[in-house]
Amino acid sequence: MSARKTRRITQRIEQNLTDFAAGFKLVFRRWQYVVTAVIVFLVFTFILELFSSGTGELKLLFAGISLGEKAQIMANIFLRSIGLAGEFSLEAFLAILISALQGVIGGFLAFVIHEKRTRPKTCKVNLAKDAENASIGAIAAVAGAGCASCGTSIIAPLFAALFSSSGYVLSVVFGWLMNIVAVVIAVLVMINLGKESLKYGK
C-alpha cells in the first residue's frame, strides 16, 4: 500500500473518531440517553449471561416450577451478569464489552429516533440500516456466548447434532468468530451512529 493511501486511510479513521467523540459528547450530556444506555447495557448483560450459562437456566424459566423459583433464578442470573456473583474471565470481559457497546448504540438510537421525530427534515439519517446492523451484532454476540464443550453454549446442541462429538470443537471456534463479529459490528455501528447524531447537533 502506498504511503499516500495509508495517510488517507489514517486521516479518514481520525476524522471518523473525532466525529464520533463529538457525537458522543452531544448525546450523553443528556441524562435521558445515559439512562437509556444503562438500561440497554443491563438488559444485554442479563441476556448474554442467560445464554452463556447453558440451556439449564433457560429451560428452567419455561419449566413447570413456581414463579418464586423462576424469580430466584432470574435474580441469580442478574447478580452474575453485573459481576456480583461468579468469577471473572475473558468471556465475562467480552460480555461486558459487547453489552457496553450495545448500551452506547441504544443511547444513540434513542437520540436519533427522538431528533428524527421532532426535527424530521433537518437531515437525512438512515436509521433503519444502523438498527439492522446493531441487531445483527446483538444476534452474533448471543450466538457466540458460552463454552460449547462445557455445555454452556446455546449453539452446541445444533453443532453436536450436525457434526456429532466433533461439533463441540467446531462450536467453540464458531463462538469465537461470532464474538469477534459482534464486537466489530458494534464498534462500526456505534461510530456511525455517533457521526449521525452529530448532524442533529449542528
Partner: peptide, 10 residues
C-alpha cells in the same frame, strides 16, 4: 438441561 453456574436454589 446443560451447564451450571447457579447455587442451591438453582
Amino acid at each position: 438441561g446443560s451447564g451450571f453456574e447457579g447455587n442451591w436454589s438453582t
